[in-house]
Write a protein that binds this DNA or RNA. Structure first.
Lengths: 340, 340
DNA sequence: GCGTGTTAATTAACCGATTACGTAACCCTT
DNA sequence: AAGGGTTACGTAATCGGTTAATTAACACGC
């Protein structure tokens, strides 16, 4: 079990110098002669020396490690975000712990506890919801990327889109194409909706602004599951079976949109002509569909960049310029709204 | 920067006992009176004590951390495997580092170096290829799950399917449905093919065994990209444009199969009747497609289980019963081979 | 020859846990 | 009451790094 590795003591002994000198040489600090440097470097290489991170962390009270918590790495949108953030952090000399919370509060709390014990230098919460306010025993900087809920830390930054505006723009795009009865489909409403961050708010606001009567039968909401695809298809089937009709669908998520498209196709509806559909996230689901699904690009790349930027600033002890960073989004029109 | 946390010294002082006693109480070791235990526990709770993992790791030469390396977490198949393994490891008291190598040798080597420095207790390599033989300076147990290539460690275990048999069964399934000209589509051949692990080998073997002449024009291979979907569609288009014909397709991967199906549909071919297609992995791609794509379930759950099991055994110092563990696979027939 | 400054290197404390070892107190037995 | 065993702790070393404080050697100017 005890895998004896080479330590700086071993190298110091072999080189006939002190551990301080070895440490200095390996870290380009202090002063030492060229001869000593070459000697130490050579021996370190020969012995296959690798620094023990635990020792370093213990002494420096910094692990150079960041925790990335996300509800579902298998979701294209989140994994893109996570990977981008991980890459940026690695470039800055940080290692990332990627944690999958599955939107489970208990698991999230458990993760946070263990992460504090592991002395992570910072935390990035991605794309989920933190319902319970968790008080962490140390003051670690936290960045929320497309994430709702607070942790109650003194150093916290929020990065994300203006979600109400996103659904507003989606709705507007459908009406611009001449749709008159636009449905809203969502399979995560109860989970993701909070007072301040209502993903669907823009849909309601648009209707209100335009003086269009809201038809509650066209608001299709289901519980969030891994199978949001099938869930969404069922909602559409139930709605149509009940005799309600629509010519446009705002789907809060590409997976949901794909389910809607599949359900419509199965009923012989020509999507893009009879019914126009728009999804959200510009994920793989909207791109692989045929017809290709219109969507909203939410700029995961930029989110990750701004988030990591803010985190690194906080790690250097700076107070972030803004508490809340809004990243622009962009409607991408494809076959399901353009028709053809 | 220096976030002073509560240490056992603080607790010892407050409780008027030694650190040894505090440590014993917190770990249920040694002996102490009930009064002392309650006192120490109460103070620890009050002070929000969290053990410093770095200190523990340093002392115990074990980090209770396992590294999970995979080429692409955004790939459904791998992420399922990774998450399952992570869950099992967490249940056994281990934390996982999830690392995305993007099939980049250099990055993999960099990761391994840093992981050794971080003193991981074990390594799980998932679904990729390690081309260069990397010698690690410590003898850490390694498990390969659906992964090709060796690390040259003394404690290594391989877990995976019998891949040649998988492609054999795929090919056989198509011929069983009456196909006569079966194409092979792969967009990762050059990468994934090694002498021992030829994913396509079963295709060739089946043809040979049945005395069917191999038509090289029906072997479509492209370079591996993130866009394997589009890649695969292009290969199909090129083949058909060149005037070659087939009535069955063995696609090495569901993403590839989906590309093939999309390309065929775009040409007005009725998939499942005119041309039968079978994919591999039973991933989200085969399930969301319409028509649903026949595939091979490779049992990621069982792979993760057997792999973690073997790893835990090695971590306890046991020599694994088998060097190589084969997990059974299963052909799942759906609309693209059944027709309707 | 003497003070001053620079360079090269050492010594030893420190980070926060675990643990081998030592010891005092106490109980029980004969 | 002496001896043996158990219980309940305390002392101090240890893991492998970093670093403040210190020293020794040497060069330089006057």
């Amino acid at each position: 079990m005890a895998k004896r590795t080479v330590s700086i003591y071993d190298i110091a002994k072999l080189a006939g110098v002190s551990t301080a000198t070895v440490s200095n040489v390996l870290n380009n600090k202090g002063s030492y002669s060229e001869k000593t440097r070459d000697l130490v470097m050579r021996i370190a290489r020969e012995q296959g020396y690798v620094a023990n991170f635990a020792a370093k962390s213990l002494r420096e009270a910094s692990t150079k490690t960041i925790a990335l918590l996300t509800p579902d790495v298998s979701n294209d949108f989140f994994s893109t975000l996570v990977l981008k953030a991980e890459g940026l952090l690695r470039a800055a000399g940080y290692t990332s712990y990627i944690c999958n919370t599955a939107n489970d509060d208990e698991r999230e709390a458990e993760y946070l506890r263990s992460l504090i014990s592991k002395q992570v230098d910072g935390i990035v919460l991605i794309g989920g919801v933190t319902r319970d306010r968790i008080q962490l025993p140390v003051d670690v900087p936290v960045v929320h990327i497309d994430h709702m809920g607070a942790l109650g830390m003194s150093r916290e930054v929020y990065v994300g889109n203006d979600m109400p505006q996103v659904s507003y723009d989606m709705t507007a795009a459908l009406f611009a194409h001449g749709c008159e009865h636009v449905a809203l489909v969502s399979v995560s409403a109860s989970l993701y909706r909070t007072a301040e961050h209502d993903q669907a708010a823009g849909y309601y606001r648009y209707l209100e602004e335009q003086g269009i009567r809201l038809d509650k039968n066209l608001v299709l909401e289901g519980p969030h599951r891994q199978t949001s695809l099938i869930e969404a298809a069922q909602l559409v089937d139930e709605c149509l079976d009940a005799g309600y009709a629509f010519d446009g669908v705002v789907a809060l998520g590409d997976r949901v949109a794909l389910g809607v498209v599949n359900a419509l196709k199965a009923r012989g509806v020509t999507v893009g002509r009879d019914v126009r559909v728009i999804g959200m996230d510009d994920s793989i689901y909207s791109r692989i569909s045929s017809p290709a699904i219109s969507t909203v690009r939410r700029n995961t790349g930029q989110m990750a960049e701004r988030g990591v930027e803010a985190l690194l600033a906080m790690l250097q002890g700076n107070v972030p310029a803004q508490k809340s960073i809004v990243v622009p989004h962009e409607v991408i029109e494809r076959a399901t709204t353009l028709g053809e």
